[in-house]
Amino acid sequence: MAAYHGKNWDLIKNGIISENTIFKLVLSLCPAIAVTNSLRNGFLMGVAVMFVQTMVNITVSLLKNFIHPKIRIPVFMLIISGWVTVTDMSMAAFAPDAYKQMGLYIQLIVAFASIFARAEMFASKNKVVHSMFDGIGMGLGFLFALVAISFFRELLGKGTLWGVPVIDAKPLLIMVLPAGGFLAVGILMAAFNWMNKRYMVSK
């Protein structure tokens, strides 16, 4: 991929719509199912991933001329784990309740294909500013997907949103179980792609 020369805004749009991590690339589905049983967890996870993605992209882009191509993979790994550790510790300090529920998944961000792929395919070949916007865009796309999934799962599965009761009816318990996660991801993915096809000008 040649170095990017386009607009920053396009990078963000690309991350949210045409290369949405979950709905389009179908990557990182593990957190999309594991932590989305409540809106708060989904939101926090999305923010954590967005932060790590952006910082990793900036760091990799800054260091791209110093990293020997032969050992780039271990170096990316180190950079990612560094930023994940930062996120992990800050989360444990500032949001201990949420951290108790999803601490393991925060640490698992290290192994996210999407973060690694953007470091390898974009940040290591592009300018810092572009890499930052790419990170923000991909992160926003991930955040959007997680919020959308957890919105439906919590609403249908518990009848609440962010812990606040919204609908007063017998909830569909299956939606907060893992099986419901697959259902929600599948249906939202279909809806996203359908709308995309219908309303966006396809390139």
């Binding site: 017998k170 909830p171 569909l172 318990l173 299956i174 939606m175 179980l177 099986a179």
Partner: peptide
């Protein structure tokens, strides 16, 4: 199956 898991 959906019902059994939703309304056990």
């Amino acid at each position: 199956a959906f019902l059994l898991m939703s309304f056990p």
